[in-house]
Structures are given as structure tokens and as C-alpha cells.
């Protein structure tokens, strides 16, 4: 670390003069310390924006915004076909957060970011969670407990974390999995909650092309569990596990 490194915070908040900025950017190219610091501080800086109370948007605002754009600032209209690039989203989130935060908060951050961007995950449980949870004045949420999931059998290299998140009287289970082997055709991974030898189906998922998966499940009020198990099922609609167990809490 040398003298030039000291300008990092000022660079991030854009308080350097043009000349200093240029110099620092030259320094940045060669200083890995500053490269890491900058990334991490920028992550922090952006995080600060989420310290915001949610406010109801006036219903007239949309019209005000659209009129402002299309009547006061007219622009030519044309349309073309666009070809989007698809990317594994969990990967991208991790790319963004892994360097900034420790492993647990990476996983939490994944959950956070997914929430923030409003990820539409293709599983029924999430849709249910959304409809059930639409409460206006949400109580502060908190992580009640975390559970580590380890892979076994054909998913021996897989790992994951489960979080119980309490919001008001509602408890959600959020499970994040990594390094899951790909599933074929109808195959799905199915999550089971175990209590005194009985199993409750807590949803199914298919990992993305990078082996990452995420599932949320709203816990019924009366339901508690001792352990979490995940099986590979040939049929997504099983009420009892038929396939082999591939992951579980230890």
C-alpha cells in the first residue's frame, strides 16, 4: 500500500480534481489492493441507498411522469426486435457480492438481491409466498436460524444454506443451493421438512445451468421441523419421497 492508495475514498465519491482522478486511475490499473477496496466500498456505498422507508406512490404519478416525457420531451418512436442475453442470475449476484461480504452474508445478499430485483422464480411456492405475504406494514424481518445443507450421493459436491426468516407472524424458509448436478426432463429436486419421522413437501426446484438454485417456502403456522432433506424425484408431484436423498442438514 502506497501513498496513492489514500485517494481511494475520495475517488469513489468523486471528490478528486480531474488531474488527481487521472492519476488515481492510472494507479488503480496496477494496484490490486485498491481494485479490491474500490469494489468493496462501492458495494457498501450502494447498499446505503436501501436505508429507505417505503412510501406509497401517488396514483397520479405515472401519468405525470409519462406526460412529462412524451408531451414535454418528445422523442421519435420506432421499434425493433431485441435479442436479450441470458445469464445465470445467481452467478451474477454472487459476482457482485462475493468479494464484498463474508460467505453467510453472500447467501443473505443473494436472498436480498433476489428480493430487490423481484426475481420471478419459477416455482409455485414462491408464487404462494407472494400472495400470502402481501401485507402493507411489514414488521421488521429477521433471520431466526440458519442451517447448512450438505450434498451426498450423486450430489456429493453440492452445498447450500437454509434460512428461516421471520416477518411479523410469518415465517419463510429460504434455501439456496450450489453445485447441484443438472436435472433431466421432468426430474426435479424436492425439498422435505422432517419432523418425528414424517415428511412435509416444501417445494421443488430445478437448478440453473451453473448448478445454482433457490427456493422459498412459507411455513404454515403449526409446522416446525427437525431437519431438511432434498431428494431427486422423477416426478414433480410426489407427496412422499420416492427418489434418492441427495442433500440434507447434518
Amino acid at each position: 500500500m502506497e501513498n496513492k492508495c489514500e485517494n481511494l475514498s475520495l475517488y469513489m465519491i468523486n471528490e478528486l480534481t480531474a488531474l488527481e482522478k487521472e492519476e488515481f486511475e492510472r494507479h488503480l490499473k496496477t494496484c490490486t489492493h485498491c481494485q479490491h477496496e474500490l469494489e468493496s466500498l462501492q458495494g457498501l456505498w450502494q447498499t446505503l441507498s436501501y436505508e429507505v422507508e417505503e412510501v406509497d406512490v401517488p396514483e397520479t404519478l405515472k401519468a405525470d411522469v409519462m406526460n412529462f416525457i412524451f408531451e414535454e420531451n418528445e422523442a421519435p418512436q420506432q421499434e425493433q426486435k431485441v435479442k436479450p442475453t441470458k445469464k445465470g442470475f445467481i452467478d451474477l449476484i454472487k459476482l457482485n457480492f462475493k468479494k464484498h461480504f463474508s460467505p453467510l452474508s453472500t447467501a443473505v445478499a443473494v436472498v436480498l438481491v433476489i428480493g430487490l430485483v423481484g426475481l420471478f422464480w419459477n416455482n409455485l411456492q414462491l408464487k404462494e409466498t407472494i400472495t400470502v405475504l402481501e401485507t402493507k406494514e411489514a414488521d421488521p424481518s429477521q433471520i431466526v436460524s440458519t442451517h447448512i445443507l450438505k450434498g451426498q450421493g450423486l450430489a456429493a459436491s453440492a452445498n447450500g444454506n437454509a434460512y428461516l426468516i421471520q416477518e411479523g407472524s410469518t415465517t419463510n424458509l429460504v434455501i439456496e443451493l450450489n453445485n447441484m448436478p443438472r436435472t433431466k426432463d421432468e426430474e426435479v429436486y424436492q425439498v422435505w421438512l422432517l419432523k418425528n419421522g414424517t415428511r412435509q413437501n416444501a417445494g421443488t426446484l430445478k437448478p440453473d445451468q451453473n448448478g445454482n438454485g433457490l427456493i422459498t417456502y412459507r411455513l404454515p403456522q403449526s409446522l416446525s421441523f427437525d431437519a431438511i432433506g432434498i431428494t431427486l424425484e422423477l416426478n414433480p408431484n410426489n407427496t412422499q419421497p420416492q427418489g434418492q436423498k441427495v442433500m440434507g442438514t447434518s
Binding site: V52, E54, I114, G115, I130, E134, D139, S141, I165, T216
Partner: peptide, 23 residues
């Protein structure tokens, strides 16, 4: 870019609350 489609859901609210608390 995050491959996401839906805007306001509750996870979002949960997440923001959680993040706000942390900040």
C-alpha cells in the same frame, strides 16, 4: 443484469427490511 421479471413482491419487502436493519 439480473434475470428477473416481477417487481413488487414480498420477498422484496422482506429483503429491504432486512437490509435496512443491517444498515
Amino acid at each position: 443484469h439480473i434475470q428477473g421479471q416481477q417487481s413488487e413482491d414480498v420477498l422484496q419487502q422482506v429483503s429491504r427490511n432486512l437490509l435496512k436493519q443491517q444498515i
